[in-house]
């Protein structure tokens, strides 16, 4: 079985000439299906840049990225429709839930399958199933503003998972949460990774959750260093 994510020699330079910044200077990374890895590094080390490259919202400068053995970037994009790539193959979880305030909980999640052309009824059915799996099924009809921070983050995770993408990119998903809720989110991510064989990259510098990773990538000055984690139960 090919790796879910395989990155090699990835570089990213912002700007040109004197103003150029080399945010990534050669990143190598492998994540297997069902694996949750931590991506840790100081501020300005290139974590977000890496997620943006992998999330196909900015273009790397050079290197190679493959999803499930298929190159999506090889010194140039290998797929024509990056929008569809994001929609169908990548789930995003952000630091804040970033839910759409004018949609209720179900439709926030159902929007993704709808954007992929699934009918409203079955998209909502899928959304409700995912919300139930994340223990927020009882809030399905609520306006998002009525949910607590932890509930909102679980809805955001349901949204990232609903199209069952092979990979999920999470950018500091526990930052606004207290340690109990932060660990709950990590537990959910682990469960979901197991259940759907999803590869998950979690960018964090949250001390509470770092010990839960089995494998950690440190990123410093645009380069990654792999390290075994403690892999404690969350």
């Amino acid at each position: 079985m090919p790796a879910a994510i395989e990155i090699s020699g990835l570089t990213k330079r912002y700007g040109v000439g004197d103003a150029a910044v080399d945010a990534l200077k050669g990143v190598d990374m492998i994540v297997q299906p069902g694996e949750v890895v931590g991506l840790i590094g100081p501020s300005g080390s290139g974590k977000s840049t890496l997620l943006k490259c992998l999330g196909a919202v900015i273009e790397p400068s050079a290197g190679r990225m493959a999803l499930a053995g298929e190159a999506i970037y090889d010194n140039g994009w290998q797929v024509a429709d990056l929008r569809a790539l994001r929609r169908d193959r990548i789930g995003f979880v952000f630091q804040a839930p970033y839910l759409i305030p004018f949609l209720d909980v179900t439709d926030n999640v159902a929007l993704l399958p709808m954007l992929a052309g699934v009918s409203n009824a079955s998209a909502r059915e899928r959304a409700r199933a995912m919300l139930t799996a994340l223990d927020v099924g009882h809030r399905a009809r609520a306006p998002v503003a009525q949910l607590s921070g932890g509930e909102q983050q679980r809805v955001a995770i349901a949204r990232a998972l609903v199209n069952q993408p092979p990979i999920i990119l999470a950018d500091e998903p526990t930052a606004p949460l207290d340690s109990e809720r932060a660990l709950a989110v990590v537990r959910i991510l682990n469960e979901m990774a197991q259940r759907f064989a999803t590869a998950i990259i979690v960018v964090t510098h949250d001390e509470k959750i770092i010990p839960t990773f089995r494998r950690i990538y440190h990123i410093r000055d645009g380069r990654t260093y792999e390290e075994a984690g403690e892999g404690r139960a969350a």
């Binding site: 929008r83 994001r86 995003f92 970033y98 759409i100 993704l112 954007l115």
Partner: peptide, 16 residues
């Protein structure tokens, strides 16, 4: 703006 960025990220078309 933020909702629009999220919509675009999760694959909404410009047309939408």
């Amino acid at each position: 703006v933020r909702e629009i960025a999220v919509l675009k990220l999760i694959g909404a078309r410009n047309r939408t």
